[in-house]
Every structure is written in C-alpha cells, then in structure tokens.
Design a protein around this nucleic acid. Structure first.
Lengths: 192, 192
DNA sequence: GTCTATATGACGATAGAC
DNA sequence: GTCTATCGTCATATAGAC
C-alpha cells in the first residue's frame, strides 16, 4: 500500500482548510494542488470530503500539540514556557503571510452545527492541546483547577488573536495576547 | 423605497453567516428563509453575495458594539462591567443552542485572504468593539496602553472561547474565560 | 491503485416580462 | 420593485476501464 499519495492528499487538505475553511475548499483544488489522482481520493477516503477533512484536522491537531509540547519542555517555568510558545506562534504566523496559525478554527466554526464527525474531531484536537498546556501548568505548581482554566484560556486566546491578526493583517493582536498572558500567568490568586 | 425587504435580507444573512460561514451559506437559502424575492437581492445589492455579506457583517458589528457599550455602562468598575458582558455573552450563547456568539469569526477567517472588502469590513467591526472595551478600561483608570492591550485580549478571548464552546457544545470554555478575565483585570502590574 | 468520463445537483448571476 | 426562467460554472460523487 502506497502511503505517499494519501499523505499528499492530507497535507494539501490541511493547508487549504487552514486558509479557506471547509466549504471554501473544493476537491478539485485539493486534487490539482496535491497532484494526487482523483480516483485515489475515494480509494483512501471512501466517505469523500468529510472523511478527508477529518483526517486533515486530526493531523493538524497532532502537529499543534507536538509543537506545543516540544516548546513547553524547553523551559521549566510555565510562564516563560508559554511565552516561548507564543513567540513560536507569532513567528509562524508572520512567515505565513497572515494566512496561518489557526488550522482548525474555520473548520470548527463552519461544521460544528452540521457535521458531528468533524465537530468531534476538532473537539478532540483542541482538548489534547489544552491538556498539553494544563499538564505543564500543573507540573509548574498551579492548582489543577486553575491550570485547566488557564490552559483553556490560552488556547482560546490564541485562536481569537489569530482571527484578529489575520483580519488586521498584523501580528499586533498576537503580541498583545503574549504580553497579557505573561501577566496573567504571574497572578497567584486566592480565588480559584 | 421599501426597506423592509432589504432589512429582511440583511437579517437573514447575518443569522446564516453566524452559523455556517460565508461559503457555507448560499443565496438560495437566504432567499428562501428571508422570504425576499430573488430579484430584490440584486436590486438592493448589485454586487451580489459579497455586498450583501458585507452589509450583514457591518450590522452584526454594530449590534455587538451596541450591546457591549450598553452593558459596560451599567457598572462603574471596569472589571465588574466586563464580567457582566461575559455573563450576557454566555446567556446569549446558551440560548442559541451552541450556534451563536461569534457572528463575524467564521466570515473573517474564510475571507481574510480572498476578499479585501469583507476583510476590511470585519476589521472595522472588530476595531470598534475593541475600542468600546478600551474606552471603559481607560475611564476606569487603566493606563491607555494597557487598556488597549486588555481590550484586544478580551475580544480575542471571546472569539476563541466561542470556537471552543461551539465545538465542545458546552459553555465551559466561556465561563473559564470569564473567571480568568476577572483575575486578569484585577492585576495592577508594573510591566506595561 | 489509478484514470477518465460522467451523473446530478447547487451555486452565483443575469435577462426580460411585468 | 418584483418575478420567473435560465445561463454557465462549479461542486461532490460514481462507474467502469485499465
């Protein structure tokens, strides 16, 4: 079984979904840009577009989590570690010409109410990413409840800041989030 | 000139864009659900779908800002005022069966790289919303630079938390953001 | 596994009557 | 201002040869 064609399809789909969303991306474009034969698409993904998109979403989720875990493990202090993740995100976003950074957001918004399969796949990917942040924060001494809460807010903040940054064609929303996260993670607070 | 038909078109488009995004919403569905005649669409919006969507985005932006300003003006303390906005958002999101809450996010993500008209319309709407929060924070004593930064982070957090909440079909991401924003707004910090 | 050809329907947009 | 009919294009999906 040749996995190259399949991988090419998933790779191209991931890239296009990130920039254009689910309904904005057609199979014709995926086939054209991946160089994969049309017949192979339905061979590897019998359920068609939805199954292919789900595979792309899952892979993008893994990629985000792997990147995050790798960066977080470079520094012991959680606040500093999250700051490095933000720096990496900002760098990646700048390099993408203001098109990248939130690979799942558009698909999640478009399909949450229409496709249970894509919704749950997105949810699983987000939950793993949140869990990665939460684990780092817990290991760094934050109480578990607050660590979970902060992790959710970090991921939400990133997704939202990417929306604003893309829309404004500027990294400023992301850099502002970076600075405020640094402050927020420094807040040891009684109320939890 | 009869504005009822036009208003019906914009209203219906706003609702559908919020739930399905730009490419996921067809003119046929807009015409069917609005009850507006097909001919009227191109009479009021000669540029077709893009112009209609821009009008819907602008109106949703105004609506968000008006709602935010109204709630913020109810309480003097900025942290408490933002908390009330969050409460209102959560209530609205719950009432929408996990489909509402970020009327512009999907359109912004899908079209940022494809339509200058829609991108700038989204940017203007977001900027007005951010400005509303920033004004309240500045009036409440936050330094201007930090107020602007906090305002951006609040809006970004809301957009991202709505993505997570829709995907998980739960208000928890939004409530977690609400709690952390309360903490963040309590942080008077040297670093600005 | 891959290819081409095609089925079937939805899309955005337009023309011309009224 | 509204309505209907229709154009041309695109979409996803499938069938059958190789």
């Amino acid at each position: 079984m040749d996995n190259t064609t399949r991988q090419q399809l998933v790779e191209t789909t991931s890239r296009l979904l990130e920039a254009q969303g689910y309904h904005g991306t057609g199979l014709n474009q995926i086939i054209r840009e991946s160089g994969a034969p049309r017949g192979s698409l339905y061979y590897y993904f019998p359920d068609g577009k939805e199954e292919l998109a789900a595979a792309a979403v899952a892979e993008q989720g893994e990629r985000m989590r792997d990147f995050t875990v790798a960066v977080l493990s470079q520094v012991a202090d959680p606040a500093e570690a999250v700051d490095r993740v933000m720096a990496g995100m900002i760098e990646h976003f700048s390099a993408s010409h203001f098109c990248g950074g939130a690979p799942l957001a558009a698909v999640a918004l478009e399909t949450a109410a229409r496709s249970a399969r894509l919704r749950t796949t997105c949810a699983a990917a987000y939950n793993e990413l949140i869990a990665a942040f939460a684990a780092k924060l817990t290991a760094g001494g934050y109480p578990e409840i607050r660590a979970a809460r902060l992790a959710t807010v970090i991921v939400a903040g990133i997704e939202g800041a990417v929306i604003l940054s893309r829309t404004q064609q500027s990294v400023e929303p992301l850099t502002r989030l970076r600075e405020e996260l640094h402050i927020l993670l420094g807040c040891k607070v009684e109320r939890m």
